[in-house]
């Protein structure tokens, strides 16, 4: 029997086919999936903030886009993924509340997505699929066997990326 591995908020985990990996109710956070399609190894991190260097208390690597992606790669390589094969799929970064002012606090989802893309670009990992922004929550499931990312939202059709 295959297992569904859960990733919480500010958390990360890795998985090998036939198991799958999920994170529930992404809002302004970003869910980043890294995938080695040859070895069928995947990793997922649920990041809350763009940049660990801007925050004093930055011990939890999975909380930030920069350190979260680095740590995810490290753990994936440990279980046999090939660094050069890695591709990425990302989702989340919504703006959950329609604030009238456009302060920094309100643009956090967008900034999380920008930071994620910048980090992946620096590492030379191509983004193969993306479902980000807008104003609703997303649950994502990734299946390393097929490489499919399933996205579920309230009152919306399921999407497969």
């Amino acid at each position: 029997m295959s297992e569904m591995i859960k990733v919480g908020m500010a958390d990360l985990n890795v998985c090998i086919s036939p198991n799958a990996i999920t994170t529930l109710g992404l809002g302004s956070c970003v869910g980043i999936v890294l995938y080695d399609p040859i070895k069928k190894i995947a990793g997922m991190v649920h990041v809350m903030l763009p940049d660990s260097t801007k925050i004093l208390n930055n011990e939890n690597k999975a909380k930030f886009a920069d350190t979260g992606i680095d740590e995810l790669i490290r753990q994936m390589l440990t279980i046999g993924a090939d660094r050069k094969s890695l591709i990425a799929k990302i989702a989340g970064g919504a703006q959950m509340f329609a604030f009238s002012n456009n302060s920094d606090m309100m643009r956090i989802g967008e900034r999380n997505v920008e930071a994620t893309k910048l980090k992946l670009q620096q590492l030379g990992i191509p983004i193969r699929a993306e479902d980000t922004g807008l104003n609703y929550g997303r649950t994502i499931e990734f299946y390393p066997e097929t490489g499919e990312l399933l996205i579920k939202s309230v009152g919306k059709e399921r999407k497969i990326l």
Binding site: M9, L24, G27, S28, M96, G137, V154
Partner: peptide
């Protein structure tokens, strides 16, 4: 106000 999944709503104060 927003009506959505608890995780998504909570992400805003959690951040």
């Amino acid at each position: 106000m927003a009506i959505d999944m608890a995780g998504a709503i909570l992400s805003v104060p959690a951040i």
